[in-house]
């Protein structure tokens, strides 16, 4: 198909970077210790949260601070289910139910917002309020009267001793969890790249660019937005489930204001309309932040300043601009 070939040519640089990144990341366990590998697994979980933001904001233009809330809901639901039933062989089922719960919450919230004609900044405000409320609620559940399925919610201490991920009889260890995350991130990248060039992808693009026009081309924009928001909530919830499997704990801090805004800031600074930029920038930020914080620097201050500079000078985002420029150079050299 000519169309696909042309697309490959136009994005050859991005695909090359994606491939190189994948190889470099896969090699990590061979040149660092298990501790570093485990830390890196956390960064990849953050990347999945970033992917959910790319999905709703980058492709469909839904500006939301609610992803941390869905991550928290997914995480808490998974933790409660796996602690209540205490049967590690059904891990996948718990994960599926947890993700379904988060999707349902996203669908209900999305229904109220998008069918009510709420858009753009207001979606950001409502989702931010929802996230803060989730955190406030979970923080005040310290007493023994706060239980779900007999699992005490634990207030600010959250839930601890969550069983690790087990599929069938295989119990994931630090190394295999790392590889699972690499595979998941790569799979998301490939699937989203494919979906973007399918009808559903163009429909999302249409909603992002101009909702009135989309309606007049026969798109049910509110429905599309609810669907996108629900899927995005599901991806975030998956990140929450994986977070529990990684650290064996979850606390209300996972739904804090900071937790809800940093992924959005990272997407904006890296390049919200470029999936590879969102993933790379998120992971690199956490790597850098890890080094700089131990050296006594305030990385949030730097991130804030960087965000301002990016919006003023490179509104497409740092990585997205670089990739675009280099791709342009390649095409010029060819011509």
């Amino acid at each position: 198909m000519m169309h696909a070939k042309e697309r490959l040519k136009n994005n050859v640089f991005e695909y090359a970077i994606a491939l190189i990144t994948l190889v470099v990341v896969l090699l990590i366990p061979f040149y660092t210790g298990l501790y570093q590998v485990n830390v890196f697994t956390y960064y990849l979980i953050c990347a999945i949260l970033g992917i959910s933001i790319y999905f709703i904001w980058g492709i469909a233009g839904i500006f939301s601070f609610g992803q941390a809330a869905f991550m928290g809901i997914g995480g808490y639901a998974y933790a409660i289910l796996s602690k209540h039933f205490d049967d590690p062989s059904k891990c996948l089922l718990y994960a599926a139910v947890a993700i379904a719960i988060a999707c349902a919450v996203a669908a209900i919230l999305g229904y109220f917002m998008f069918y009510g004609g709420i858009n753009d900044v207001f979606v950001g405000l409502i989702t931010m309020c929802v996230t803060i409320s989730c955190q406030t609620f979970m923080s005040q559940t310290a007493g023994s009267q706060w239980q779900i399925l007999g699992v005490a919610l634990g207030g600010d201490n959250g839930l601890n001793d969550i069983p690790g991920l087990t599929i069938g009889y295989y119990r994931f260890n630090e190394l295999s969890l790392f590889f699972l995350l690499v595979i998941l991130v790569a799979a998301f990248y490939i699937v989203i790249k494919i979906v973007e060039h399918r009808k559903f992808g163009y429909a999302m693009l249409s909603v992002r660019e101009n909702r009135t026009r989309s309606e007049l081309l026969g798109y049910d924009t509110a429905k599309l937005q609810v669907i996108v928001f629900t899927i995005g909530g599901g991806i975030a919830a998956l990140a929450g489930v994986l977070y529990c499997c990684w650290g064996y704990y979850i606390t209300p801090a996972s739904m804090s204001l900071k937790a809800s805004t940093i992924p959005v800031v990272l997407a904006a600074a890296g390049g919200k309309r470029s999936l590879i930029s969102v993933i790379l920038f998120t992971v690199l930020y956490y790597i850098l932040s890890n080094y700089l914080t131990s050296a006594g620097a305030d990385t949030l201050l730097m991130l804030g300043a960087l965000l301002i500079v990016v919006i003023l000078v490179l509104p497409q985002g740092i990585f997205a601009t670089i990739i675009q420029k280099l791709q342009g150079l390649i095409q010029k050299a060819e011509a």
Binding site: D298, G304, A305, L307, I308
Partner: peptide, 25 residues
Amino acid sequence: LYQRVLDSVVATWGISLVLSEGMLQ
């Protein structure tokens, strides 16, 4: 950023990070 409303909203989030972290320092 007067012409770019959504960008300016994101920029104010940058300002908020700088202010609260700056005050902490």
